[in-house]
């Protein structure tokens, strides 16, 4: 999940009796699966929670380019390089679709960027882990994009129109990401013993961080209850995590790789796997900024933003100059005609 622990503003979902007439009408629309569009009336909490959630999602796409971009120049073949380049370019696109969706709620792109760069806005914890070798690039596509898809597919039905449309587009493109990752891991798992060992090692390191992507159990969370009533969250974190484990275990078995969990066991009663929880202490620590790569990621983003300033300003100045010249030419032509 690319948005973890998004706080809503209220103290849980309001009951019908507590709602104002506007809030009740709004909830009726959501219950009837009518999409909310930018200029429609919406509760302030809905607007704020969505800005936070979509923003976090967008930031994750952008920061998510870093661990993979790191390997573009070192991909093992030209074909793998072209594929990875296309994937990383997609992530930039996904970030842009989502920023645009958030902007329709009344926040500017620059405000969102500033929030990311000064640490007020979060991005997914997963991107604070390093990609140490080529096998990690495979594991990221397979596991990280796999987990992201788990969360994004239901979000295509989210109540906010622009967010829903962005998710539909993203989901269409995302499936390639997971498959290319699995393809890399498959190649390595079926390769030399050293390559297979690398694939196993990548799975060992990225398994629990991937499970953390769904966030901690939210069965008692007031934020989740409100977000689910508003249909900006469709499934609980635990539901999605379970689905992810159930889907991924057979994929690992097919490759002859072992999920690094001694407690992993098929449970006939729930038709799903029992599995170990990740270390939530580590998760909160990473969120606080103490993961292996937090500082590195933020330093890279800040550098890119600062060093790109002259390009942004220069292009704007050029556009203004051109527009001014065009106005002058038109005016001269008009005067000549008179």
């Amino acid at each position: 999940m690319y948005a973890q622990m998004v706080k809503s503003t209220g103290s849980g979902a309001k009951s019908r009796e507590e709602m104002t007439p506007e809030e009740a009408a709004f909830q009726d629309k959501i219950d009837a699966d009518i999409k909310i569009e930018p200029r429609d009336w919406m509760p302030e909490g809905y607007r704020k929670t969505l800005i936070r959630q979509i923003g976090q999602h967008a930031h994750s796409e952008i920061v998510g380019q870093l661990p993979e971009g790191n390997w573009i120049t070192r991909a093992p073949t030209l074909e793998r390089k072209a594929i990875l380049l296309a994937k990383v370019q997609d992530e930039a696109g996904h970030g842009l679709y989502l920023y645009s969706a958030a902007e329709t709620l009344g926040i500017t792109r620059d405000e969102m960027t500033e929030q990311l760069l000064d640490g007020r806005a979060k991005y997914s914890s997963i991107f604070n882990y390093p990609t140490l070798n080529w096998a990690d690039i495979g594991a990221v596509g397979w596991l990280v994009d796999g987990a992201a898809i788990m969360n994004q597919v239901p979000l295509q039905r989210t109540s906010y129109g622009p967010y829903s449309r962005a998710m539909i587009r993203i989901c269409k493109e995302e499936s390639f990401h997971q498959r290319q990752g699995y393809d890399i891991v498959m190649k390595m798992a079926q390769g030399s013993p050293e390559q297979k060992k690398m694939a196993q090692d990548a799975l060992n390191r990225l398994w629990y961080p991937s499970l953390m992507m769904f966030g901690p159990s939210d069965k008692d969370s007031v934020h989740s209850a409100q977000s689910m009533a508003w249909k900006i969250k469709i499934n609980t974190n635990d539901e999605l995590r379970q689905k992810f484990v159930d889907q991924t275990v057979p994929q690992a078995e097919f490759l002859g790789l072992t999920i690094p969990d001694e407690n992993l066991k098929w449970n006939e009663d729930k038709s799903g796997y029992d599995f170990s929880e990740p270390d939530w202490g580590e998760f909160f620590d990473v969120l606080k900024g103490n993961g292996p790569c937090n500082q590195d990621r933020m330093a890279t983003r800040n550098k890119a933003w600062d060093e790109g300033a002259w390009v942004r300003e220069g292009l704007m100045a050029h556009a203004e100059k051109k527009a001014e010249k065009k106005r002058a030419t038109e005016l001269a032509a008009q005067q000549a005609a008179e």
Binding site: A309, H318, A323
Partner: peptide, 29 residues
């Protein structure tokens, strides 16, 4: 500095259909 203006994007698909709104982006011109 000043943010680039917002543009709405319309694309004509392959099959001779009308241009359709697909999203937006920022650009200087």
């Amino acid at each position: 500095s000043q943010e680039w203006p917002l543009w709405e994007i319309f694309i004509r698909g392959q099959h001779g259909l009308s241009h359709r709104h697909v999203g937006s982006l920022h650009a200087p011109d």
